[in-house]
Amino acid sequence: MSASEAPMKALTIRLQDELFAVEASQVREILDLVPITEVPNALPFVGGLINVRGRVVPLADLRVMFGMQRPEPDQDTRIVVMEVIIDGEPTIAGILADKVHDVTDIEAASIEEAPRVGMRWRPDFVKGIGKRNGGFIIIPDMERIFDTTDGRTPAAATTEERSSL
């Protein structure tokens, strides 16, 4: 990531107080909040399903993975529909965002690897940290976050995070 020369085209979204950047090329569309169908007994990280143009799409809440508070949606809440790789298979998923900002270039040189220590979040969920306008932007490692094969459950990760907070 930091080695690549080209700037990263990223969509910036806000989750609680943090700015996140997701690869713009993976974003399919951005939706206003739609009715969410709860999936009983599902992990809180992927607790819902939504209808995106006739497709049933899982709705993920990254805030769970980053141990954040999850207030009720408000007028800024959006759903970012994007392609994520789940266990090697491209899958369409929705991501809840507290607010969607803009599409921006993040200079490759400004992206640093996530520090192994001193971070509030599981380091393997963070691909890198970019800088823009003096602030930090977290680049989440979507593949790791959506990985279901490594045996760790997102719920466990959450409690782990919460207890360490």
Binding site: V39, P40, N41, A42, V46, L49, V56, V57, P58, A60, I86, D87, E89, T91, A93, F146, T148
Partner: peptide, 9 residues
Amino acid sequence: QLSKLHSDI
């Protein structure tokens, strides 16, 4: 079909 994210349910 449900996605892999929900295949455990």
